[in-house]
Design a protein around this nucleic acid. Sequence first.
DNA 1: CGCCAAATCTTTCTCTTGTAAAGATTATCA
DNA 2: TGATAATCTTTACAAGAGAAAGATTTGGCG
Lengths: 227, 227
Amino acid sequence: MKPVKAASTARKPAIKTSKTALPAKAGKQAPGPEPKPYHHGNLRESLLEAADTVLAREGALGITLREVAKEAGVSHAAPYHHFASLDDMLAAVAERGFLRLREAMAERAQAVDTGERLLQIAEIYVSSARANPAQFRLMFGPLLARKTEFPPLKVAAESAFGLVHAAARAHDAKNGSELALVCWSFAHGLSNLLIDGAFDGLPMELPAANVLTRQLAQRVLMGVVVA
Amino acid sequence: MKPVKAASTARKPAIKTSKTALPAKAGKQAPGPEPKPYHHGNLRESLLEAADTVLAREGALGITLREVAKEAGVSHAAPYHHFASLDDMLAAVAERGFLRLREAMAERAQAVDTGERLLQIAEIYVSSARANPAQFRLMFGPLLARKTEFPPLKVAAESAFGLVHAAARAHDAKNGSELALVCWSFAHGLSNLLIDGAFDGLPMELPAANVLTRQLAQRVLMGVVVA
DNA sequence: CGCCAAATCTTTCTCTTGTAAAGATTATCA
DNA sequence: TGATAATCTTTACAAGAGAAAGATTTGGCG
């Protein structure tokens, strides 16, 4: 699959924020079907968007450097000028996922009641995972375990958790950290099990996923009934 | 990576439980360094063990058909007589993982107190994941979402959950199912986050993983403090 | 303005990997 | 014993990651 050796000593991609804007679409006289400039002008961003597209279309398995490059309309070697490797690109995709997750949580968890806010966070977490399982798997895949290799990913991931932590502290100042870990673990596990279809075909009747989430999250917060 | 097309129409592997036992190690006069019989005799099992070895040695990323075949000492095409594809083999590996997990949980969760039993299950779950992260990732990877394609995997996975379900029902007959889902989700999420290193470098002091597990699991069972 | 260096993109190559096809070897059973 | 099927090997192929080198721009800098 991937040659074992890591980023070699070849010329480094020199990842520089391209200053040039997208070239004006129309040429001088538009002689044919868009001559397409040699320099893309904004390839890095385009690649990330293309990666999102491919990820949603093909699933986590079908995401390929070549496929992404094709989706972005460049040669399969072009990405190497913006990313050190496929993993590096995927890490950037995951990073965006964490940023979006954080944004979504911040945006929707607005309730005044601190407990309700935690419930909303759990709901968003789970529904985000369900909305794009492939991206969720990528975000929490083996890349995350190597986040020290990808500092921006590390920052984004920890920033998302920071939001959970803050909400937990607001709910319980003394045990905020523990509460945050419990909530996060629960929401994360439920998300994973749901998108893995681990519950499918289970010998018990389950409500719809979003209902189930709130129901279980409440139980975690309020404490399970100790019969 | 893998040519898109699925299992083709080629002759089917005719997976039959080989009746012949392992050939006696010593030949007639042992002329050289083990002539090695043409027929392995027990290749399917050997491949699964080799896969476990490779999985533990190389991680989830480095497990390849060819590497496993080499580890088992056969040609890289031999596995196709016992597994329809790489995924099929990995599904079998995952299946064994679920069987072992179930066994481990059944073996250690012996406490008379039903709550304590749930705590022990959580501990086993998490410690199993931490003991062999690659296998855990494989078990709950994208293959699980396709478990209908691999019936034995489906059976093994559901059997493992069945044990959790039983323990939860013992603790709370009325809400056993909900409790089982909560416990499972929590343990699963915590396992994932731990092996992903999601907690590494977090701005809070955490106890050792096994201590943390019990501590948080207690909180889930007893209910978090609603300040 | 003109030119050189660096950045960006392409084509071409190599190596690894999953899988197919066909041939060799051995076991099974009538 | 001899045909048939199962098991294993060798060979072949296509797809993917990444390296190497060449083509095309862009951007300074005189």
